[in-house]
């Protein structure tokens, strides 16, 4: 609170917000529980400019990146970044088993780059682990447009175009042992080639919803012994690591946020002040608490079950994240 709401270090957005609100979070917010006083972070605040209003004065003069999320229609949400994506992915790197994601191995990213954080984040992850990252781009906004137009033949053609490029790289660069891709592109890749034959030992997968059945299918039928690391994350929060599956989980995908940099809560969709019980379904609410970005209690477009802490991650997690069923219209998720 001191950093974000001090005139010397805070960003213009929060400093102006503080003036309008008429109270001082530096004195009135004493704990995580007090974050409710902000009344929830509004989605619209991140749409449109000036984007510099989000750069903390404490970071003035530093190189700034801007990453977007959403944007299939209308103005995408933007988040400025200085070091956060590096810190997030370096922390996440510690959760990847070296036996399957060997240090020094090269990576291939098949997925959305462009305005997304992934364009730099996966490359940084690879570099942080001593590897080089090859990339094949995919434009998810175009895919969503094709789906909305009913152009499924073109969707298939585009997917084939992306996978063709990935195969070329995999065949040409034998040191590629680690892969980042999205669930549907992973399926498409495995329809064309054996991961084992291509020398892939670890797959880091994310970007869209994964069901428990997909999780099982991927591990049992696509991986051929490679490690499958599903993730949940976005530009606003960072990256949630998965808990290694155990038989009693019945292939549920369980994520834990990168605390204390970010937290995930599961709240009653009809009463946002109530955190649901463990095992109960609710809407996902994100809070980001880094020095670069303060985002208190942002309601995501997802729902999940609240998960108990575990030994490796002694804080609340989420189970089986999926699009929020309370929306009237479904979200087109596309191939990416």
């Amino acid at each position: 609170m001191q950093w974000h709401f001090s005139p010397e270090t805070g960003c213009p957005f929060w400093l102006e917000w503080q003036q309008r609100a008429g109270w001082d979070p530096r004195t009135e917010v004493q704990s995580y529980a007090d974050l409710h006083k902000f009344g929830g972070f509004q989605d619209e605040w991140l749409r449109g400019g000036p984007v510099r209003r989000w750069v903390p004065k404490g970071y003035q003069g530093r190189p700034v990146s801007v990453f977007e999320t959403g944007g299939s229609t209308g103005v995408p949400k933007s988040r400025v970044n200085i070091d956060d994506f590096r810190i997030d992915y370096e922390q996440f790197s510690r959760t990847l088993p070296d036996a399957y994601f060997p240090k020094g191995a090269d990576w291939l990213e098949i997925g959305p780059s462009g305005p997304r954080r992934l364009r730099l984040a996966i490359e940084h992850l690879a570099q942080h682990r001593g590897g080089i990252c090859f990339m094949v781009d995919l434009d998810p906004r175009w895919v969503i447009k094709l789906i909305k137009m009913g152009e499924m033949t073109m969707v298939e053609a585009y997917k084939r175009h992306v996978i063709d490029q990935a195969l070329t790289l995999l065949k040409a660069h034998p040191n590629i042992q680690c892969l980042f891709t999205t669930p549907k592109l992973l399926e498409a890749l495995c329809e064309r080639v054996s991961l084992k034959k291509m020398g892939i030992t670890g797959v880091f997968c994310g970007g869209t919803e994964m069901t428990p059945q997909f999780h099982r299918f991927a591990v049992e039928e696509l991986m051929e012994g490679a490690y499958f690391a599903p993730t949940y994350g976005n530009t606003l929060m960072g990256l949630a690591a998965h808990k290694e599956p155990e038989p009693e989980d019945d292939w549920a995908i369980i994520y834990y946020p990168p605390a204390p940099r970010a937290g995930i809560e599961v709240v009653d969709p009809t009463d946002g002040s109530r955190i649901v019980e463990y095992g109960e379904t609710g809407r996902v609410r994100l809070t980001t608490l880094t020095k670069e970005f303060f985002m208190p209690q942002f309601l995501e477009r997802d729902e999940a079950e609240r998960e108990r802490p575990c030994v490796k991650y002694p804080w609340d997690g989420v189970r089986n994240v999926r699009p929020f069923s309370g929306f009237a219209t479904s979200v087109v998720e596309g191939v990416y």
């Binding site: 669930p183 549907k184 399926e187 495995c190 329809e191 069901t211 059945q213 997909f214 299918f217 991927a218 039928e221 696509l222």
Partner: peptide
Amino acid sequence: SQANIGLIRRDLR
């Protein structure tokens, strides 16, 4: 039991 799309595509090869 519900079949996921990837499973269907894989079988139908």
